[in-house]
Each structure stands twice: as C-alpha cells, then as structure tokens.
C-alpha cells in the first residue's frame, strides 16, 4: 500500500512538471497576438486608393452614356401625340437648317430647332386629304365633257354606270344530244 502511495505521489509530481513551456511564452503570445490583430502598416495606403477606385467605378456605372442622336430613339411624347405633322416638321427642319454631316454641336442645335418647330400648332385642313391640281389628262377629259351635249353626257354617264355594274351572265343550258340514226329505226 505504501508503494502504491509512493507511485501515486511520484505520478502527481511528474504530472505537475509535465509539458512545461519554454521560458517567455507569455511575451511571445502577446507579441504574436498584437502582430496578428493590428492591421499591417504597409497596407494602410491601400484603403484610400481602394476607396477612390470604387468611387470612380461607381461614377462610371451610374453615369448614363447617351449618344447625341441615338439611331433608334423612341419619339418624344409630343411627337407621338401628333403623328401627322411629323413629316412637315422634318421637312421644315430640312429647309431651315441644313443638317451638317459631322459635329455633335450642330446636330444638337438642329434638334433644338426641330423641337421649337414641333411646338407650333399647324392649321387644320378643310378637306382631307388636301386637293391637288388636275393633271393634263384629267383637264382634257373635263373639257371634253363640258363641250358635249346633254344627251351625250347622259350616254356617257350610263356607260360609266354600266361599266361599274356587275356583269350578269345567264345560265348556260346545253340541249341533250340526239343521235341522227334514232329516227330511222
């Protein structure tokens, strides 16, 4: 029993001195933790540089990049409301400001003038579509009608009406074919 106790005492003593760290562990731990926890001074300059880069990127993404005259731009609401005079507007623009082939500034000026022209209301027409002057053939036909007598005019009118009337075709009847030898028998 005494031997048993002695072995236990020896074991306890050995356990208390088991795994002793090398001297100065506390200092090494504190040094290591402070080195790992604090940000590296060499990388501090990266923060403002990174922020500036992020700001530039954000501006680039957020800025709408529009060309002066987009090729398939949707018409403005005002033009869409009055589609008929649009052709006249374009014609007016062509006459008033000859569009230069190059230069965004000229184009922008032309567009601005077009917008002003669009805003002026156009006069309403009495007859739509607007009457155009008679051609030479039409004038010759009108003269011929004016020179003819009343009877000829009626005949001409009747012929016109007849030409316009639908054609009626009577039913075709085919008589039965009889053999010439039938009566002889």
């Amino acid at each position: 029993m005494a031997k048993h106790d002695e072995l236990d005492r020896l074991l306890d003593e050995s356990l208390s001195s088991y795994a002793e760290p090398v001297h100065g562990l506390e200092e090494r731990v504190l040094r290591g933790v402070s080195a790992s926890a604090s940000p590296r001074p060499r990388l501090l300059w990266l923060w403002p540089a990174g922020l500036a880069a992020a700001a530039v990127l954000l501006l680039f993404v957020a800025t709408p990049w529009r060309s002066p005259l987009p090729p398939h731009a949707a018409p403005s609401p005002q033009i869409a409301r009055t589609p008929a005079p649009q052709r006249d507007v374009v014609r007016n623009v062509d006459k008033a400001v000859p569009l230069p082939r190059h230069g965004a500034a000229h184009l922008q000026r032309a567009v601005a003038q077009t917008t002003v022209a669009e805003q002026e209301p156009l006069p309403k027409l009495d007859v739509f579509p607007s009457p155009s002057p008679l051609s030479a053939e039409e004038r010759a036909l009108a003269g011929l009608v004016a020179r003819s007598s009343a009877q000829e005019q009626h005949a001409l009118l009747a012929a016109r009406q007849q030409a316009d009337a639908p054609i009626r075709i009577s039913a075709i009847t085919v008589p039965p074919i009889s053999s010439p030898d039938k009566g002889k028998e």
């Binding site: 795994a19 760290p21 090398v22 562990l25 090494r28 731990v29 290591g32 933790v33 790992s36 926890a37």
Partner: peptide, 14 residues
C-alpha cells in the same frame, strides 16, 4: 503546442 496557444489567444482576443 505554441502555435496552438497563439491561435487560442488570438481567437480569445477577437
């Protein structure tokens, strides 16, 4: 074992 001690205390510090 020292590495483990460093890691343990760093975690505790955080």
């Amino acid at each position: 074992a020292e590495d483990a001690v460093q890691e343990t205390f760093l975690k505790l510090y955080r």
